[in-house]
């Protein structure tokens, strides 16, 4: 997947969790949680969806790397490069 595709994947997953999520003002380098009103339970859903869709096992220790959209893409790029 390209960086853009990964970004779209994340946004699609978030939309699936919260259909009212507003991406218009979303800043890629700032924490997703603060900007989108996501709590830790919603956050777990992003991890679970990645596992369900792409069989990715993300260890709990790596969750902080999914904080912002940019950090998500950075973290996932090598893991999704062959998809």
């Amino acid at each position: 997947m390209t960086r853009d595709e990964i970004k779209d994947l994340i946004l699609e997953i978030i939309k699936d969790i919260d259909e009212d999520a507003d991406f218009d003002t979303l800043q890629s380098d700032l924490p997703l949680r603060d900007q989108l009103d996501l709590d830790s339970m919603d956050f777990l859903d992003i991890v679970m969806e990645l596992r369900k869709r792409h069989k990715l096992q993300i260890p709990e220790a790596d969750y902080p790397q999914l904080a912002s959209l940019t950090s998500c893409v950075n973290y996932l790029e090598p893991l999704l490069k062959n998809i």
Binding site: I17, E19, D37, D42, D45
Partner: peptide, 16 residues
């Protein structure tokens, strides 16, 4: 009120 327990519960269950 997205962060209210009731609405969080619904989101977690994927109920609209």
């Amino acid at each position: 009120d997205k962060n209210a327990p009731l609405n969080r519960l619904f989101r977690q269950l994927k109920l609209r």
